[in-house]
Design a protein around this nucleic acid. Structure first.
Lengths: 105, 105
DNA sequence: TTAACTACTTACTAAAAAGTAAGAATTATT
DNA sequence: AATAATTCTTACTTTTTAGTAAGTAGTTAA
């Protein structure tokens, strides 16, 4: 079996979940949305996340190139997170998830 | 704060993830799709899941009323799992996840 | 009488994910 | 000289999730 066939073993759902699965990633992507969000702002928007998880997940999302970061070299520091073009591709997923959430009860 | 406002605290994304989040649920729902699936069939379709997890997650999905089960009282036993009407409401989510999976790399 | 079939169950262990709490960095302000 | 501001980091613990491996049930076929 060739290396570039290995990707095809796994179903697309499994593949996507490796990237946007887990407790926090979709929520973070959702809160960033079309905006530029500061770290502290995201913390407020997702009150139940710990700082550790927020920064850890942001880091991972940046590795996947779904999120980008701009640091202003000020004291106290200021950073802005936003979605990359690739990151914006989750919008339709989020849209459907929100619809699903409203349809269940 | 009134009790029926409590639901509104959490964002819809978080709410949906409680139901369809985790490593296996969307994959199971995806493999059932429009079909009637036997336990052993699902096991084959999702080769990396353990029997324990498969049955545990099926049980949970049934509690959420996304999946229903029909047992034929035969020996050896035969059961069929299928999506309820409510369960079929995840299709648009799955659809977008599959699109997302194909767009990333 | 033994094995095979299918859908589970259970006890136990291991791994992954998440939480907590403290602290570092750096400059302005009091 | 102490405090506040903001974005992180680190060590440690707890909780949650998942995996393993063995076993159960009840017929049928070898």
């Amino acid at each position: 079996m060739k290396k570039n066939e290995i990707n095809k073993i796994e179903c697309p759902v499994g593949k996507a979940l490796k990237i946007i699965g887990g407790k926090w990633r979709l929520r973070i992507l959702n809160e960033i949305g079309e905006e530029k969000r500061r770290f502290g702002e995201l913390k407020r928007l997702i009150p139940d996340i710990s700082e550790k998880m927020l920064i850890q997940e942001l880091k991972t999302l940046m590795e996947y190139n779904l999120v980008s970061k701009k640091s202003y070299h000020q004291i106290p520091p200021k950073v802005e997170y936003s979605l990359t073009e690739k990151g914006k591709k989750v919008f339709p997923v989020l849209e459907q998830i929100v619809i699903f959430a409203n349809v269940i009860d």
